[in-house]
């Protein structure tokens, strides 16, 4: 019961962040699901993608409806993303991501400072 509500609220928090900032919902969802301790790493990640996908679809629909997305500018990112996604999915678990994760964290911190100034 309690886990159910924390899952729902984590979903809502992820949705709000995703809609407001155009991404990052997984950053809210994954730590909560991880703390619940029911799912292993791969399940945790795959499941969070499955939650974020409809969330993103709703956000994207609103952005499109409000005219905030130039499709021509988006196209090359999407093509690249699909290719990278397939490649990444196939190689998942075969690459150690520890240092990549730290590099990413440092880049996000840098981003935070840049946005704050």
């Amino acid at each position: 019961m309690q886990a159910q509500w924390s899952t729902r609220l984590a979903g809502a928090g992820a949705g709000l962040v995703n809609g407001l900032f155009g991404g990052g919902g997984g950053m809210v969802l994954i730590p909560v699901l991880s703390r619940q301790g029911r799912l292993k790493d791969r399940q945790l990640f795959a499941t969070s993608v499955a939650v974020i996908l409809p969330v993103c679809a709703v956000s994207a629909a609103v952005y499109l409806f409000r005219g905030s997305v130039p499709l021509a500018a988006a196209a090359p990112y999407l093509v690249g993303g699909a290719l990278g996604g397939i490649l990444g999915g196939k190689t998942y678990g075969k690459v150690s991501t520890l240092w990549l994760r730290r590099l990413f964290a440092a880049f996000v911190l840098y981003g935070g400072v840049r946005y704050l100034l």
Binding site: G22, L53, C56, Y63, S68, L78, G81, A82
Partner: peptide, 12 residues
Amino acid sequence: QGINLLFFLPTA
């Protein structure tokens, strides 16, 4: 933000 949202759909 808009591109990022669209981007996630095919990738995900």
